[in-house]
Design a protein around this nucleic acid. Structure first.
Lengths: 347, 347
DNA sequence: TTGTACGCGTTATCAA
DNA sequence: TTGATAACGCGTACAA
């Protein structure tokens, strides 16, 4: 049973038509008489032909229908982040209009395997949270003429960026806290650099991750002297650890904590409870992202709602535009400040 | 600047060698003299040639290096599940040995777009949690001779399945509870069927999702009369809702709850606390999966640790085997029962 | 070690 | 509405 797969040529021959006609029956690009169509389809059924080989079609058309999504981190880690998940949802929609699918790619190929970013049949690539690495692969891709878009990161000149008004948004939350009378404020940041280990962020620590730096800057515009504790990732447990460090010294306790993500904020709240502090009565907490934190109820975070899915969708559209030969512009989305029940006037 | 992309033929001509020699320089399949290699590489650099076109190479080789991963549910929903995330990690590894990447596919294409499952240049496909639908697309794929593997689901005859000993495993947890003296037990199940709404599961409710059915059967082998509440998904908040329903009537309170996932168990624990019950003193709770539940500390679930990443890896290997022309067998992994601090003797 | 020749399976173009 | 022709860009026997 291991004969050659039948091709469109076989079908055409069996149906007594030319290959191009058979092709048209499957692609629908041109009108075909019903009689002919039936003959071709029948022949196909008989031969077990199930449609054009995508590989050949893709070579001929010059399009594969595949958009690569490149993550810097370990793939599983990426999906632990609800913001990225939402973004993927939007991206799925965004490229669907293109009839394309998403190919998951890791920046760091697992040793010994070829860098798929350069060998995969991509029509376009979307980089997620690219903080300046992977420039080499990127160079190859752009040289190949493959459109590239970056979400929350910087890939250098000429590459469209989809991002947020991180700084301004975070400043809003800080202002809100100041308006409530808070003065002693601590900040819990996202990782400060690649491979960052949980810990206090020194004043002269170089911050290489854009999002972290911008949000921190926004908070410090209002509270220049606020201490900052850098988490190792956006997880509740990281927020918990950060919160413990922050609330450790009763004498130095802040009355408000600005967390750079909702998950971190959730952890901080738990740490506060652990330390016998009530939220928001004893300590106010703000988050960032506006995602649903599973299990956080009855709290409703005061946070900045970012259009995560929109970012993905916009990236998809940008890619589509570039594929259509148009230039795609960078986009900065605006976060919406939402007051929940985790902030209150200073006691 | 918009002239034709240069091809390997151009490079060969510029380097003064034949196309096949140039090809060999890039593929490394045959030895080439250093001088020749240098000439070719130089020419490539000059022309901005960045390597073989993946589309053409894939046609020629008959391999695209792409494995499709098909989810039934909305894509974002899939990644909210830590088990699936881990599985994806394993799968990534599993196919990496193949030099392949993962193409994300949704079962239900978002209307108006082509079913990518049939038009994408796949070398193989992995179905996740397939409960018997999508038979048509599947038929096309298998007819095309594309290897298919199913994780936690059933795609019919002849398709290798990667799964767990769900029934036996769950029975173990139940036995543990019985050994602790528990008699009045409630079960919180995963969704009972596609589109299931949260609620009590009637005795004659048809259970169409394999995992749910098997785990329920395992629990009922020990506690035939245990009531079951079906969650709408594997989330903490769903477990919370289920727990509230279960603990609502003080007179009918169970002394132990068997949850079909760790996230559900986490929610149940929270519901218990809410109802003023202590875990495990007043009520014991078991989970299933053995994943790290973010924010659950200090609890450590008594649960069944399933090799989620292993499942993914095995699927990748099965796919690799089939691609190599060998038959791949179905695999049933065994869960390991782990006692945590959420179960205790009946008060 | 290098070159020749051919085909992978399809589709765009144009003419009939 | 259909058919002939010519790529698409590459890899690989095989010969030299």
């Amino acid at each position: 049973m291991s004969t050659r797969r039948s091709t469109i040529t076989d079908v055409a021959r069996a149906a007594g038509v030319s290959p191009s006609t058979a092709s048209v029956v499957f692609s629908g690009k041109t009108a075909v008489s019903d009689a002919t169509r039936k003959r071709v389809l029948d022949a196909a059924g008989l031969l077990g032909y199930t449609g054009p080989d995508p590989r050949a079609a893709s070579l001929r058309r010059g399009r594969s229908g595949i958009v690569g999504v490149v993550f810097e981190e370990h793939l599983g880690a990426a999906f632990l982040d609800p913001v990225k998940t939402l973004m993927m949802d939007g991206l799925t929609d965004g490229v669907a209009s293109l009839g394309a699918g998403l190919l998951l790619l890791r920046d760091q190929a697992p040793l010994g395997t070829e860098p798929t970013l350069t060998t995969a049949p991509l029509d376009a690539a979307v980089l997620v949270g690219c903080s300046g690495m992977l420039r080499e692969s990127l160079a190859v891709v752009t040289a190949r003429g493959i459109p590239v878009v970056v979400i929350e990161g910087d890939a250098g000149e000429g590459i469209p960026k989809i991002g947020l008004d991180n700084r301004e948004a975070q400043r809003q939350a800080a202002s809100h806290l100041r308006a409530l009378g808070h003065e002693r404020v601590a900040i819990v940041t996202l990782p400060v650099s690649a491979g960052w280990q949980r810990g206090w962020v020194g004043a002269d620590e170089p911050i290489t991750i854009d999002v972290t730096r911008e949000r921190l800057a926004g908070a410090r515009e209002v509270f220049p002297d606020a201490v900052a504790f850098g988490a190792a990732g956006s997880f509740i447990d990281e927020g918990l650890a950060a919160g413990r460090a922050i609330f450790a010294d009763p004498a130095a306790r802040p009355t408000a904590v600005i967390a750079q993500s909702d998950l971190l904020a959730a952890g901080v709240i738990r740490a506060a409870e652990e330390a016998g502090l009530r939220v928001p009565d004893d300590v106010s907490v703000t988050g960032f992202d506006g995602v649903v934190v599973d299990g956080l109820a009855p709290y409703e975070l005061t946070t900045l709602v970012q259009p995560a899915a929109e970012k993905g969708r916009a990236a998809g559209q940008a890619v589509a535009a570039m594929l259509a030969g148009q230039a795609a512009a960078s986009i900065r989305f605006t976060c919406v400040f939402r007051v929940g029940n985790t902030t209150a006037p200073r006691a």
